[in-house]
């Protein structure tokens, strides 16, 4: 039982992180029907900018005196950086192909992914980069169950981000405009909504969330690597498909499920297969219910 609860806690932590990444896939798909293969790279970039900033703060001893401010600053700056990176990528690699076939943009996304990942390798090296170690050590122990402070921080942060996103998308004027753009770009233009601006904003938000997830993963596993975007990227993509691509609530749910399945699969079946479970789910969803849990039908995209 203790083991089960421990796994549950670990699963929620990981699932939340996947949910954050999955949102970027699903939102971008919602507004322009593009699977942004480069999305995982924003996550990786986030992990790196995070480690650079935190190491800088730690090196100055600021981590000891003002840990929360340093952490908050690192999250904000990293998310901002990745948001701008994503808007740049969108302008350069996707905007010019907007009226071309979808395949063109898809190939462009693959190219961007390879480019960004190599840029990260060339500038940061091929070896693991450790996160400053002394952050958030310790935790609460309930018998055999341990909840680390880090897990609490990650889950809280995830909840804050997910709730903020929901408010933004479902309660604000910008969110309305985003959903309108996803539903009908011509009509949006007829009521003065410039779709390019909204699309840019969507990329920025998605990348910002992925960047936050990047720092969380870095903190959680203790280090980052240039190719860290690949596997979590595909898992988060699976989560988005599982939830119904284009559907925001679906992506959150899908992320949580994939995280749980991975942790429980690793815990009860085999740790060596932990990366396989997400793909089994992806294949099963595509086979049995390609529209996902929340999707209505494939053309019925929603943000």
């Amino acid at each position: 039982m203790d083991y089960f609860i421990q796994q549950l806690i670990n699963g929620i932590t990981l699932g939340g992180i996947y949910a954050l990444i999955a949102l970027g896939y699903t939102m971008v798909y919602g507004v322009i029907q593009l699977i942004n293969f480069a999305h995982g790279e924003f996550f990786a970039a986030g992990g790196y900018v995070g480690v650079i900033l935190l190491s800088y703060f730690a090196g100055r001893g600021l981590m000891e005196t003002h840990p929360w401010i340093c952490l908050g600053m690192s999250f904000m700056l990293t998310m901002g950086y990745c948001a701008f990176l994503a808007m740049g990528v969108e302008k350069v690699a996707y905007l010019p192909l907007r009226n071309q076939s979808r395949l063109a943009a898809l190939l462009s996304a693959l190219g961007v992914s390879i480019f960004l990942s190599n840029a990260l390798m060339l500038t940061q090296g091929v070896f693991d980069k450790p996160y400053p170690g002394e952050l958030f050590n310790g935790g609460w122990e309930f018998g055999l169950v341990t909840i680390s402070y880090l897990q609490v921080m990650i889950v809280t942060m995830t909840i804050v981000l997910l709730v903020s996103l929901n408010i933004l998308v479902f309660k604000t004027k910008m969110g309305m405009a985003m959903r309108a753009t996803a539903q009908d770009k011509t009509m949006s233009a007829l009521v003065a909504i410039g779709s390019n601006r909204i699309i840019s904003l969507t990329f920025a938000i998605g990348a910002g969330l992925a960047a936050a997830a990047g720092i969380m993963v870095g903190l959680y596993y203790g280090s980052v690597r240039y190719d860290m975007g690949f596997v979590p990227g595909i898992k988060a993509f699976s989560a988005a498909v599982l939830g119904g691509i284009g559907n925001i609530t679906g992506a959150m749910l899908g992320g949580l499920i994939i995280g749980m399945v991975e942790i429980f699969g690793a815990g009860y079946i085999s740790g060596q297969y932990k990366d396989v479970f997400a793909f089994i789910i992806l294949i099963a969803v595509l086979y049995f219910k390609p529209t996902g849990i929340m999707g209505v039908n494939v053309d019925d995209t929603r943000v």
């Binding site: 309305m176 959903r179 309108a180 539903q183 009908d184 011509t186 009509m187 007829l190 929603r302």
Partner: peptide, 11 residues
């Protein structure tokens, strides 16, 4: 007001 009204269906 375009042909077919083009209401945003899920708003």
């Amino acid at each position: 007001v375009p042909e077919g009204r083009r209401i945003f269906p899920r708003l």
